[in-house]
Design a protein around this nucleic acid. Structure first.
Lengths: 201, 201, 201, 201
DNA sequence: GGATAAGCGAGACGGTACGTCTCGTCTTTTG
DNA sequence: CAAAAGACGAGACGTACCGTCTCGCTTATCC
């Protein structure tokens, strides 16, 4: 049971309810892009959307629910799934796109929201769903590499993706270190090595 | 010039100033451990420390400054620097300790604070200092491995540490996936492979 | 447009808004009577009225607005309008009543508030309205005296009242000299003489 | 026992004590002229005078004492004592000068301070002294008029002055109505009439 | 198509955090 | 050791935000 379903009264599209929902969603995205996810306040949203704050509270209950709902509805926008015929090129492209996306207020907002919203049943669920989808979406990239013999048979797609994206998120959100093409290149090299069979220390 | 220096009037230890400082620091740590870093409010701190909120504002100016100061003053507590004679064992021990530390309210608090405090000159500085120290503290582990021939000559210590800790932080703060010994073992294996010379895709 | 109108959301009497308003007004009057108008603080009012300070700020914005609003709403309570058939008796009665009223915490409070509130558009307006009403309310006293021939035709009512009340306020607020019946008697005598035609030096 | 004596440690003039005193006095006058007597704050004074606030507190104890002390030391500046040979002209000149003086920040400040400082033994004393001196200073004006036969023998000087200045203070401090030459002229006329023997209603 | 139920606009309010400012006291440091 | 320097305690002031509630009206839905 997703937050959205929990929270969204299913009404005929185009009706008043839908209009309010869209206006508010748009407003939240706008606000997130401007000030970051933890500065988004209901009054601001209310003004931007031209919707009374009481209506927002009636529908979403709390700021957190609202933000979460919007973030999830937006998490659909998946990153490009490269298919160049080479694992190295695929990973490089994907990493570059991810870095660019995370520099987007939206990209950063979604990740931050998922990461740092106060924990609750719903948030945990939403988070899991989000990352599951992320991992799943990029499975093909790995499958193809295995088929091409670039990765050992039985390689776990999720592990590959995680190994690839973890340091990127780490730099982006924890250390705030910049990432240039050189970093991406070396990082991809390490990822590929990490996934080969070979010496284990 | 660190935040702490910027903010702390250097007075004779044991004097009133020092007493207030200590009480407030203790209170912040307590509060961080209880509710997490972003729920720490001045009134709460004020009550816990038995220090007037106005005194806190006089000294630290804003909540953010205060939290940052405390987090930094605590960042001294460095993690153990294992020296078992084997890179694999060293990394395993370190990773395990890190995971345990990050499950500590304090460990989580420090990282979250550094990661998510509203950006400012000071916060950026403090963050850089924190991570620099982290990386530097663990340099010996790598140096010794290189000397033992477990890692190629010229291996960058920072890269090793980053490769090791990034996925741990990623899981801890972004995906919130649990990490058991098996994960650590496989992860360390990947890290060691990643740092060898070998196929690059 | 008076402060009160500016500030008072006209809501259904008996509703919550009205209850809050009344509680606060009552509290302000109480406080004014106890400590004088310039010691009335929002926290005190808030406690007395059992109304959150934030609600008071929402409605009145500043302490000054609140005090002013209350003072004005109270300025309705007009002094008695004597009609004894004799100007001298009328003035004496009125002066005596005024002196008694100004010794009231409320009377003193209103006058002091009007006199010494920090100047602003609104305060100036309110002050003018207050005194206009005061002067107007007592016009009849003069009109009747003129009709009886006790004062020259064309005598300005406001001048009469001002001549009567100015020294009373002067003593009450500036010199703090006491005023007894003898003072009133002599004062009224001088007022009546002052308003006759006659030698002008 | 005056406030000043009570409060001023008698030190050698020209010494450091005297310097501080002068600087603070000057600062208070400056501040009074700029913002009015009830907005004068110790921090402001402290900055202006280049004297630590704690030094001010050590010497004067409270803001009120300080203001009072300064106001009194300044109350010496007496208004001109006209001597034109005509009561009417004397009163007109005096009234005009008074009005101008009360429009001065200093003039207004002194009167307001005396009128509205929180009541206390000392304030009451100081107030009485101030007005006594005021009345006394202008006695000659009346004496001469009596000698010239412009006022009845036995006319009380204080009454004359009070009758003259009360409405001026009333307008200046209570109603805030402006006073022009025409007002002064008519007012003086009324004062003179009021003090004659004649009909009393 | 008219009754009815759901939701919205409007406007407070309670509760609370934040940060600024002032007054007067107290301690620490310095000449 | 006394005055200067510098907090500190106490508390008012005003702003902003979150979440709740009430009331009246407009829409959508349903009989």
């Amino acid at each position: 049971m997703s937050v959205a379903e929990n929270v969204e009264p299913l009404r005929r599209p185009g009706g008043r309810a839908a209009k309010v929902r869209e206006a508010v969603h748009r407003a939240v995205l706008e606000a997130v892009e401007e000030h970051g996810v933890d500065k988004v306040g209901i009054p601001d949203i209310s003004r931007r959307a031209g919707v009374r704050d009481s209506s927002i509270y009636r529908r979403w209950g709390t700021r957190e629910n609202l933000v979460l709902d919007v973030m999830l509805s937006v998490s659909e926008r998946t990153l490009p799934l490269p298919d160049t015929g080479s694992l190295r090129a695929d990973l490089t492209l994907f990493a570059t796109a991810l870095i660019a996306y995370l520099d987007t207020p939206l990209g950063a907002g979604v990740a931050r929201a998922l990461a740092f919203l106060t924990d609750s049943e719903q948030v945990a669920e939403a988070r899991k769903a989000f990352w599951d989808k992320r991992y799943e979406a990029n499975q093909a990239m790995v499958t193809r590499a295995v088929e091409r013999g670039e990765l050992p048979a039985g390689t776990d797609a999720k592990t590959v993706i995680e190994t690839l994206i973890a340091p990127i998120h780490f730099r982006r959100f924890l250390t705030h270190e910049p990432m240039d093409d050189r970093f991406v290149d070396q990082h991809v090299t390490r990822v590929i090595r990490a996934l080969q069979s070979g010496p284990t220390g």
